[in-house]
Design a binder for these strands. Structure first.
Lengths: 229, 229
DNA sequence: GATAGTTTCATACATATGTTTGAAAAGCAA
DNA sequence: TTGCTTTTCAAACATATGTATGAAACTATC
């Protein structure tokens, strides 16, 4: 057991450096210098560079997924086993958006690391992300419970678009700011979440009330805070 | 001047290999072997590996942007200088979606290369993508013309979400197929385009008719082809 | 405090990979 | 042909970078 403190120092240093300078640009030697440990320590404690990166990503990833599922479960319990569709989307996109765009976390290395990981796709991370499907299935299942009888493909498309919008907002927040010359406010995370949720629900229900079963999707309650009108 | 045929062979081989095996996994030696040219030819003709990648990406990128703008202009001319908002979105997301998901192009190295480029973000390509903003501004301008007086931030959010959905569909088509166990049909590109366009318009207009000026957005004409109902 | 296990360290290893070189070959104009 | 430019080629270069090694330092248990 012993120190374990070298291990943590490496993790922290690696997260910080990767977050700031990207994966392509940070070597093990940079990391051990930042952590003030010996080069061989990385292989001793993690086995390889890729396993170090994987551990970093898995840790943050698991935490994020846990947050999502907790929010989903809370919503389902509040609704007696059936969450509203917008609550489901909120549980899906809220945690990553808050984590990566949140004000206080602006300086958080963890958040910047996850943003980096979503921009620069590096092999060990790709491998892990591919196993995320099981996690998403839980949300698909919740959506089925929320809208029983609803066409399944539509549910998946809704899920897909919700992820698209949240992910892309995280990835390209800089570009959106530049493109809009600051007109798009990326400071109010909650407003962004509600915006994504709202559009996701619309994507699913088609604006006009959809049907098949009457299963009306729960009404949006988190209103958009739009500046116009 | 002379042969120029070595140059082309390198470009073609590089595109094919990068498309198939990714950037991280293909070396110059692989490329020159595939192209049956000498190793030094790459540096002679392109200066560096990065410049080779950049040229590949720029070529395809320019072609794509040209296609987009042509479609946009056609729509604007058809509408007497003002394109409908859904036509604008269609011009924005249609070309890349057709290019990357299209049936006949399934085998096209160019398409697979562009998909790869959107998944594995490599420095030379990132640098180029950052300059894409000017191109997007043209679409923002068209949107302003289509919806004069409309809140600008909303327009940018709409543009942003449209790109999010198209880009994410290209990036994650495999995952969507797996997640939905084949229930989401990624074969009918036109249907996907209309789906993205439809959601984008809804995202912009908020489902209910928006207002500020009465400036009603042009009605959707390309209907979704949904399987349900 | 001796022994065994764990951790750290300096150093070396391996080697993949982009790049450069300098000469040979090919092309081309006169 | 001659002389010039452009292109090709084999080989060397450089070197960044992940990994392995074996000894030393440290820790803890008896």
């Amino acid at each position: 057991m012993a120190s374990d403190q070298t291990r943590s120092a490496i993790l922290a240093a690696a997260e910080r450096l990767y977050a700031d300078r990207g994966f392509g640009d940070v070597t093990l030697r940079d990391i051990v210098a930042e952590a003030n440990v010996n080069l061989a320590a990385v292989n001793y404690h993690f086995g390889s560079k890729d396993e170090l990166i994987a551990e970093l990503f898995v840790t943050r990833s698991i935490a994020g997924n846990r947050e999502r599922l907790a929010e989903l479960r809370a919503a389902e319990e509040a609704g007696g086993g059936r969450a509203s569709i917008d609550a489901i989307f909120r549980a899906l996109v809220g945690p990553p958006l808050r984590g990566c765009l949140g004000r206080d976390r602006e300086s958080s290395a963890a958040a910047r690391f996850m943003i980096r990981a979503s921009i620069e796709t590096v092999p060990p991370i790709r491998r892990i992300r591919n196993r995320e499907i099981d996690h998403l299935r839980k949300f698909a299942a919740a959506m089925r419970r929320a809208l029983p009888g609803y066409d399944e493909a539509e549910l998946y498309w809704g899920l897909h678009f919700a992820l698209a919008m949240s992910h892309h907002t995280i990835r390209e927040k800089e570009r959106l700011t530049k493109l809009s010359e600051g007109k798009c406010d990326l400071g109010d995370v909650q407003a962004i979440i509600e915006r994504v949720v709202s559009v996701s629900v619309m994507a699913l229900t088609g604006g006009e009330a959809k049907s098949k079963p009457p299963a009306r999707p729960a009404a949006l309650h988190g209103r958009l805070t739009r500046q116009d009108l």
